[in-house]
C-alpha cells in the first residue's frame, strides 16, 4: 500500500511528467491557451496512459520477454500505441458520440505524444509490476492533467496582461512553465 502511495505522489508531484521529465511538452504548450481544451486533452491523455500501461505490460512480459525479442520493444510499443489509439477513436465514434465530440480531436495528437510512449518505457525500465504499472500510468496522466490545467489558467490571465512584445506567445509560456517547474521542485525536497 505504501509503495502504491509513493508511486502516486511521485508521478503526480515529485517527478511530474511535464515539468520535470519534459514528456508531453508539445501538447503542454500547444493546447494550454484556455482551460476547456486543456481539461479535455488532459483527461484523454490520462485515460490513454492508463490503458496503454495495461496493454504494453502484458505484451512485454508475456510476448517479448519469453521469446527473447526485448530488442524489438520500440517497434512493438509504438505499433501497439498507434493501433490502440486508432481503435479507441473508432470505438468512441461508433458507440459514444458525446465523448467522441469532446475528446475525439485530441486522439490523433496522442499517438506521437512522448508522454504515452514514455509511460510505457518507464514501466519497463523501472521494472514495475502489473498493478504498479497501471497505478503509475494513471497518476502520471493525472500529473499531466494538473500541469496542463494550471498552465491554462495562468495563460488565460496572461492574455490580459501587458507582456513585452518579443515574449508574446510561446516564449512567455516557457518562462511561466519554468516558474511552475521551480515550484514543483519543492515536492522533491519534502521526501
Amino acid at each position: 500500500m505504501n509503495e502504491l502511495i509513493s508511486i502516486i505522489i511521485g508521478a503526480i508531484f515529485v517527478n511530474n511528467f511535464v515539468l520535470t521529465r519534459f514528456l508531453g511538452i508539445c501538447p503542454f504548450i500547444g493546447v494550454s491557451r484556455s482551460s476547456k481544451p486543456a481539461i479535455g486533452m488532459g483527461l484523454a491523455v490520462t485515460a490513454v496512459m492508463a490503458l496503454v500501461s495495461a496493454i504494453t505490460w502484458p505484451v512485454y512480459h508475456f510476448f517479448l520477454l519469453p521469446y527473447g525479442l526485448e530488442y524489438m520493444y520500440i517497434v512493438v510499443f509504438i505499433l501497439v500505441i498507434a493501433s490502440f489509439v486508432q481503435l479507441l477513436e473508432m470505438f468512441l465514434k461508433r458507440y459514444n458520440q458525446a465523448l467522441f465530440k469532446a475528446f475525439g480531436i485530441y486522439l490523433p495528437l496522442i499517438t506521437t505524444n512522448c508522454a504515452i510512449m514514455g509511460v510505457a518505457l518507464l514501466n519497463i525500465s523501472d521494472d514495475l509490476s502489473f498493478v504498479h504499472s497501471i497505478t503509475f500510468g494513471t497518476s502520471a496522466g493525472i500529473g499531466f492533467l494538473l500541469a496542463l490545467f494550471l498552465m491554462s489558467g495562468i495563460r488565460e490571465k496572461l492574455e490580459l496582461g501587458n507582456v513585452p512584445r518579443p515574449f508574446r506567445g510561446v516564449a512567455i509560456a516557457f518562462i511561466t512553465a519554468s516558474m511552475m517547474s521551480m515550484a514543483f521542485l519543492v515536492f522533491g525536497s519534502i521526501q
Binding site: 515574449f167 516564449a171 518562462i175 512553465a177 521551480m182
Partner: peptide, 29 residues
C-alpha cells in the same frame, strides 16, 4: 538551477524571446 529542469525551460524561453526580438525589430509597434 540551470542544470535542474526549470533551467531548461528558462533557457529556451529566453532564446525564443531573443529570436523574436530580432524578427520584430524594425517593425512598427
Amino acid at each position: 538551477i540551470m542544470i535542474l529542469p526549470p533551467g531548461a525551460l528558462l533557457t529556451i524561453g529566453l532564446i525564443l524571446a531573443g529570436i523574436n526580438y530580432f524578427k520584430i525589430r524594425g517593425e512598427p509597434g
